[in-house]
Write a protein that binds this DNA or RNA. Structure first.
Lengths: 150, 150
DNA sequence: CGGGATCCTTATGGATACTG
DNA sequence: CAGTATCCATAAGGATCCCG
């Protein structure tokens, strides 16, 4: 059980859903509760941040990482943003921070079950991005070309 | 066929996946191709923007919207960001912009198949956010409380 | 090693005014 | 109506120094 999580999220893209088919599902996905919607959007906005996603990705792949290891896995992040994002993620309950009282200091980060479930939810997006890289680059080129010839 | 897209993404959270179970899947999800990874991250970063997600959500639900309708559906967005984000999304091939040569002007936006598939991929995240709202709020409160008593 | 504090630059995004 | 253009405030984020 649970050994087909990836296969399932794949089917989101692969199977032959018609335009109307998918749209039908999406349009009925959420009850338009005005108060909840706002909170959901807030959560999404926080969670769908660039660094959050990359850290999540790294921890999902590696399982447990120290501060500097994390810094190496998340290419291009400054230590400031790494610290800050990790604090936020800890606050939202996505990661646990374990401090080992040794010298030199050793701090390990790992995803909580909540963080892991978010990773699973994002899995579909990662797969989507990989699959559609070429399409997007093509779309961009086409768009830019159209613009050049006003 | 294709009428259980939502149910499928639900199972990402609901079934009893062990910590190691999910992690196992996630860690093998992507081949560590260094060049592709960077591009994927770039695409993710662009696409996982707050406004992009909300516009995507609105269009996924409503199917086809005019500029001002869109502005009403995406609460809190300025017309500047609406225009800008729509241009970007058009560039990435996520939406099509249809201009009707009438006066007063009429412009309609709708998702492309690519945009729709992204919506489907994000579906899991939306569901996750809804389901875990309470958990997150609780985690935040607990964290803040911990911090107050240093 | 794992940060905190500070400074400083850039990017983000809102408000407003104007236009076909 | 659906933008474009401009100005401006704030926030995001990098660089650097320091400390337990």
């Amino acid at each position: 059980m649970g050994d087909n999580i990836l296969k399932e999220s794949m089917t989101l893209n692969d199977n032959a859903l018609s335009h109307e088919d998918v749209q039908e599902k999406l349009s009925h996905a959420k009850k338009p509760d005005p108060h909840v919607e706002a909170l959901v959007n807030d959560v999404i906005a926080r969670v769908a941040d660039k660094w959050t996603m990359l850290i999540l990705e790294a921890l999902a792949e590696q399982g447990k990482l120290r501060f500097t290891q994390l810094a190496r896995h998340v290419t291009g992040i400054s230590q400031k943003m790494l610290t800050q994002t990790l604090r936020d993620m800890e606050r939202e309950g996505l990661v646990i921070r374990t401090v080992y009282p040794v010298v030199p200091p050793k701090v390990e980060y790992q995803l909580t079950d909540l963080g892991l479930s978010l990773g699973a939810a994002f899995c579909g997006v990662w797969v989507w991005a990989e699959e559609n890289l070429a399409t997007i680059r093509h779309a961009r080129a086409a768009f830019d070309l159209r613009k050049k010839g006003d």
